[in-house]
Design a protein around this nucleic acid. Structure first.
Lengths: 232, 232
DNA sequence: AGTCCGAATATTGAATACAATTGCTGACGA
DNA sequence: TCGTCAGCAATTGTATTCAATATTCGGACT
């Protein structure tokens, strides 16, 4: 994930990171001219980066209208989380018997940094560390293609699950669940770990649904509201 | 999937279709100048299309070296087929209770065209119809995100499963399995259908493994062989 | 006042032009 | 004979320029 040798690659990574960090809310237009000037490149590599990110599901491009940060509806998020349950549980089952102490140490390390990020309310760090912790658990499965798919799913869903954590004060629960998950991996109880992981993801889904309900209620109570230009 | 309003979109679709049709073997270099001339566009939209296809897993781009048609090793194919088992079975379970007569009719139609394509040894049509048949069965699940993921997985794996079918004379078996699958959907036996689908995909995997073994043996027996330029 | 139309502006799409990198060829020397 | 390295050709990467489409804003008309 270093700067990359080509500008297109560098821009792709930079944009991906900034989107994942939540710098722009979902739906924010990504103007080619403005972004390319800001990044100090021409529009050509920027456009290529946007195409790639579109295929990754992070931005949505409408012909002749430009790109916006991808937006997921609640049913869409639920779908993707369900896919994550299927893939991540399967991979975890294969990973646990192969996990060495080294793997677990890496995961524990990430979990510690995750906890400190939670305490400092460092939202963007949270999302990254959460994904990295999950990935660390799966690494031993040695299924790179599947892991890449899972990573893409995280990239698409983490912005939303993170939002849920932040707004529902589930930080404690999230950390506790991660700790328990790691413990189950340590004692090689793959079945229990997979079941627990399933619940972990489904909990996030439930909390997110509840939050959406509340959000919808608020939006309904207050009449519609126009958004104005963002300042440069 | 019509010509698309922008050249980038049109080129993306055209290249995707030609790759899926097997026009170029895996590993074939896709020269920008040659392809853009052939398609009657400049290199700009072509490059954007290649980026998108790379994110879809259909081509591989190496910096400053160009794009090649994506190539999967046997373990990678096995991985992706396993993911397909997980996703497709899950979706099928949800689809069957919701399938109407209309859904089943569409699937039956595709199956018939699939059969005729098999008889005519129309390889490229085979692959498309196979994927479309599977998709038709899942349509009723109303999980568009998951279906899109499954479609991408088909795009990446179908070239290989098709090859396996062609070279192992499993055409009869493939058609028979599809018929049986459709029958199980008709009698709303979701559990059996999912189990059968699982076996269906795993059969393809086994046959493919066998073929790879044989292929490896041949390659080992015969010394290496240089490939020359393709004619324009 | 409100709505509809049209020119001006902003933004995206694509082609051309230019720069940088790769790899090929062949001469040179140990 | 083999390796090495200079220089050229081929290819990709990026910037600039031009064209097409969308949006905005102002004014005329109902």
């Amino acid at each position: 994930m270093q700067p990359a040798l080509t500008l297109t690659g560098a821009v792709t990574n930079a944009l991906r990171q900034r989107i994942l960090a939540g710098e722009w809310p979902a739906g924010t237009p990504l103007k080619q001219e403005a972004l390319s000037r800001e990044l100090g490149v021409s529009r050509v590599p920027l456009r290529e980066a946007l195409r790639q990110l579109e295929a990754e599901g992070l931005v949505t491009i409408a012909d002749h209208k430009g790109a916006v940060v991808a937006q997921l509806s609640l049913p869409e998020i639920v779908e993707l989380l369900r896919v994550r349950v299927l893939l991540e549980c399967d991979v975890l089952l294969e990973a646990i018997p192969r996990q060495t102490e080294a793997h677990l140490t890496v995961a524990a390390e990430l979990l510690a940094r995750f906890e400190s990020a939670l305490q400092q309310k460092d939202i963007s760090a949270w999302g990254i560390l959460n994904a990295q912790f999950h990935m660390a658990l799966y690494q031993a499965a040695e299924r790179p293609q599947t892991l890449a798919l899972i990573e893409q799913l995280h990239n698409r869903t983490d912005r939303y699950t993170r939002m849920q954590i932040l707004l529902t004060n589930f930080s404690d629960r999230a950390h506790q669940e991660h700790s328990e998950l790691l413990a189950l991996c340590r004692c090689k109880d793959a079945i229990s770990a997979a079941a627990y992981l399933r619940q972990h993801i489904l909990h996030a889904e439930e909390a997110l649904e509840a939050w959406y309900q509340q959000q919808a209620a608020e939006a309904c109570a207050r009449p519609k509201r126009r958004t104005r230009k963002r300042s440069e």
